[in-house]
Each structure stands twice: as C-alpha cells, then as structure tokens.
Design a protein around this nucleic acid. Structure first.
Length: 505
RNA sequence: GCGCUAAUAGUCUAGUGGCUAUGACUUCGGCCUUCCAAGUCGACGACCCGGGUUCAAUUCCCGGUUGGCGCACCA
C-alpha cells in the first residue's frame, strides 16, 4: 500500500468516496473523460465559487459571461485554430513512429511547410527523399489530425461546427457588445467558466490531461500604451511569488527565485502589470486552498513554447507526484485575437478616446484549469498515517462537506436530537452531513477521510443542557458549546476568524 | 497513435477448460457500545467488451476498450 504512487491513492479514494469516476465506466469507459461524483462536484463548485468571488465579483471592472460550447467553423477559421490544431502526421513504415510532416520537411530540407496542403507536403517529402529520422526507412502518406471535435449544425449537413477548444473565443467574438456594455472604457475584464474540448492524442494521468476539461478564464483588455495597472486594479507589491526566468532556464535551475511583485516589476521580468495583478490572485488562491508556496512557481515560457503572437506566457507550475504540471497559464495575447476576428468579420474593435485617438486593446489571459487545480488540491491535502489510514486536510473554504453531525449513540434519543441539529445547520446554510451508523470512532474516521473539517457530537450531556461538542479534524480535539452558539462558532471557525485552539480552555 | 504490460464485487485480492468462483476491507440491517475505523450475527455485491476454438471459456486464441510505463504529441 505504501509503495503505491500518490496518484493511485488519490484515484482510489476518488472512486470509493464519490469524488471522480471514469465516464461511461460500465461500457468500458472513454479515454480522457471523467465524471464528477457528489463530493467531487461539491469540491469543484467551491473552487469555482472562490474564483468567482476573488477574481470577478471583488473587482469593479470584471464581469462574467457564459458562451456557447459549440460554434460554427468561421469562428475557428478566423481564430487560427482550424489551421493550428490541424497537424499532418506521417508514420514510419518500419518502426511505426509518428512525426509531424511539416517538422520533418523543415528539419530535412530547411523549407517551411506551414500552410501547405497535405498533398503538397507529401510531395515535398518525396522530392527531398525525407526518411524516418530514427531508422531511415520510408514514410507513409500523411493524414490530418485535428485536435478539435467536429460536428454538423442543423439537418442539412452543410454547416460545420466545432466544440470550442478554449473558452476565450466566445469573448473575442462578442467584443463589440461587451465594449458597449462596458461603455467603451478600458481597462475591463470579461470572465468565463465552462467546458472546453480537445481531442488529445494521448490523455494521461487521471484528470490532468482530459479531452473535456473545465476552464476559468478572464480576458483582461487594456490600452497597450498603458502598461501599468490603473484603478481599480491594485497590485500587492510586497507579496512574494516564486519565479523562473528565461535566463535561469538556459543555465539550468533547481529552485525558483522568491521575488516580491515590486521586484519582478523593477527587473522588467513581465511585459505589463496586469500579469502581476493576476499572479497575486493566483498565488493567494493556491495558498488558501492548502497548497504550500514552495510547491508552485511562475515560469516564463521559452520562445519555442509559445505562439508567435504571444507577448509572453507565464505558466503556474506545481510540483506534483506525476511531475511538474502546468495548472494555470497566463498569456499575454496582445491584440492577436481581436485583430483576426476584426479582419475576418469585417468589423471594428477599436476603442475611441475623446481626443480622437483610437486603440485596439491588448489582452492578458489568466486561464485556470479547474480539473488540474482540483487534482492539485486532492494531492496536496492528502494525509496518511503509519496505519495506512488516510484523510484530506481540506481548508474549510473548499471542504466539500463542511460539518458532520453525529449522535454518540443511536439510542436514548441522542439520534433524534442530533438529526434536529443537523437540520438546523442546513437551514443556516451549512453543507451538513448526518451519520448515525456504527460506532462513533468509525464515523469520525469516515468524516476525516473525505476531509470534513468539523464534527458535532451529541452526547448524554446534550440531553441535559443542549450543549454539544465540536471536534476539530486536524487536532482531533473537542470543545463544548451551548446550542445557541453553534451557528456563530462554526461560522468563525469556517472563516478562520478564530483558531480552534483559542476556544480551548 | 506505436511498443511493452495489465484487467475478477465499491476497493484490494485468490483461483480454475467443468458442481453454487476465494478471502479481506467497505456498504446495508440487527445486537453490543457513554468519544476516535479492530466485538458479534446476517445480507447485498464481480470474472472489461465482441468474436473464435471446444461438448463446455472467467481461463486458450484473435480483435477492441480502458489503465500503467516508454516513445511521439501537447497551437
């Protein structure tokens, strides 16, 4: 058991306790698709709620929208996804290795095959006698592999549609409506959460690489001449973040730099201050979710890792048991998307100032992977002892179930009173769970395993004076409080306004 | 997508060309029980899918699906 990899333990408890399971499992499943069960859904909802509150609602100039998952081909023609996601692949006839045709041509003949048709590319392979780089044998005819899911809209069949490969495009194509709503004033942000789809060649690692995944994104539009954030966006200059520069990657690095946002700014490590604004929110979010700061960093992506139009991409990477994984991408997309859609749709996306100056906004995009963040939380909150028992040390703010109400025993009216308390907690808005089966110790363990932070126990003293105990998951200690204080005390504990130890006397 | 490998209750696992396919834990019900999974009685629950060989396939063969590892891919 202890030899198991951490991810296997996470999968095991996910299946057993209703967090996550494979989609269509009884029919053999489908690679890259997972369903969220009761606890997984609650946990995911809490993650999204946190993002909505802290990234969107707490800021004046950011609003959330909700766009279609399926959109017509013209959108992706304009966005570039149809070309960029459509890779011609060729295969060696002997060793069966797969290669991207355009890259082979580029490597072997030093010709850019970008934009050429698949037939033209195969012709170039023949003309230049390009062979398999591994075993020098003949290559098969190329075939296209498109990472987007295609379907048809309507009954006639002539109107192609695609599932969106990122949430962002909804926002760019609605830009005129959105600027009107924002009364043509920069800066502003448009947020969106929802599913995106990519037909990945090889999904791996549970919910780390999925074919259907959920994103939380903001497109932050600003005047490119105005690199510093303006009100109401303020930067927590003293906040320290972990950062990996281009230079460090060239030399080889072991530990990221710990820099204050002010230092990052002074050293010109990022192209604009909006990135810093989101670095701060992302760092605070992960810490609030129970991830230690030493376990994640922002890495300035190398030029070959970013699209040509990027003004700089900064991945938030986490040190997970399955390797260093990107769970958040911060992309400075400049005006690439607006420019493309403006041209393709023949509409103007510029914003005019009163002095007559016109500007096409630039955009910074913090793109948060919900599933990857959720997996990170599961892994970083997972605890086990030498008996092999495990539990999740979820911070209250994301615990799927917030409180369990347990009668010490079922008999003597303890169960009835406990159930009443449970109903009252539900009425007060807590996500409360009632459990009366078996023994009290077993029920504590069951509650711990799924990370319930507090258990309310109803005992014989409760029958006399309506008092009850609150048990803290992490210390296993208990305090006794009167019924009338339960709501407030629990609320203070959940909000971390008061530490559990302070209630002990 | 390629190569290697695996697939038996919710989880982990034993085993077999042939009666009714092990065991543990979990779950549910009962008894016991005045605070941290270990007492007791009982119950539910499985051979990944399709084809082939065979009198008979969970077992052997072929194909597929899914997972793991490696390669490739990841604008």
């Amino acid at each position: 058991m202890t030899e198991d990899r951490l991810i296997d333990k996470i999968i095991d408890v996910s299946l057993r306790r209703g967090f996550i399971c494979p989609t269509a499992e009884i029919y053999g499943g489908a690679g890259g698709f997972y369903d969220y069960g009761p606890l997984g859904t609650l946990l995911k909802q809490k993650i999204i709620d946190y993002w909505r509150q802290n990234f969107v609602l707490d800021t004046d100039n950011i609003f959330e929208v909700s766009g279609s998952l399926l959109m017509p081909e013209s959108v992706f023609q304009a966005s570039g996804h149809l070309d960029a996601f459509d890779d011609p692949l060729t295969q060696c006839s002997v060793c069966n290795s797969m290669f991207r045709t355009d890259q082979l041509i580029n490597d072997a003949a030093n010709i850019s095959a970008e934009g050429l048709s698949i037939e033209e590319q195969d012709k170039l392979i023949q003309e230049h006698n390009v062979k398999c780089p591994k075993c020098n044998e003949d290559l098969s005819k190329s075939r296209n592999f498109n990472l987007m899911f295609k379907t048809e809209i309507g009954p006639s069949g002539g109107y192609a549609g695609y599932l969106r490969p990122e949430t962002a495009q909804n926002i760019f194509i609605n830009f005129k409506r959105l600027t009107a709503f924002m009364r043509n004033k920069l800066p502003f942000g448009i947020a969106q959460t929802g599913f995106s789809f990519r037909n990945e060649i090889s999904p791996r690692n549970f919910i780390i690489r999925l074919r259907q995944f959920e994103q939380m994104e903001i497109e932050m539009f600003f005047d490119p001449d105005d690199k510093e954030v303006s009100s109401p966006f303020e930067i927590a200059e003293d906040l320290k973040i972990n950062f990996v520069t281009h230079e460090m990657q060239e030399k080889g690095w072991e530990k990221p730099l710990s820099l204050s946002l002010q230092e990052v700014k002074q050293q010109n490590l990022v192209p604009n201050d909006y990135l810093l604004y989101f670095f701060a929110l992302e760092t605070e979010m992960l810490i609030d979710f129970g991830v230690k700061q030493e376990d994640f960093w922002f890495r300035h992506m190398l030029p070959h890792e970013t699209p040509h139009y990027s003004g700089g991409n900064f991945d938030l990477e986490v040190n997970l048991s399955v390797g260093h994984k990107e769970i958040i991408g911060n992309a400075y997309r400049r005006d690439y998307d607006l420019k493309k859609h403006s041209k393709a749709s023949n509409s103007s996306f510029t914003i005019a100032y009163s002095d007559g100056r016109k500007v096409l906004p630039h955009v910074v995009e913090p793109s948060l992977g919900v599933d990857r963040i959720l997996y990170t939380v599961l892994e970083k909150c997972y605890r086990e002892d030498d008996r092999g028992w495990s539990w999740f040390q979820f911070p209250s703010i994301i615990a799927p179930l917030e409180v369990a109400v347990l009668p010490l025993m079922k008999k003597d009216g303890l169960a009835n009173l406990a159930y009443e308390v449970h109903r009252e907690l539900k009425n007060s808005g807590y996500i409360s769970f009632y459990d009366e089966s078996g023994k009290i110790g077993k029920r504590y363990a069951r509650a711990d395993e799924i990370g319930i932070p507090y258990c309310i126990t109803i005992d014989y003293e409760s029958l006399k004076d309506s008092s009850m105990t609150i048990r803290d998951r992490d210390s296993m200690k208990q305090i006794r409080i009167p019924l009338e204080d339960l709501d407030i005390t629990l609320g203070e504990l959940m909000d971390s306004e008061v530490e559990f130890e302070e209630y002990e006397q």
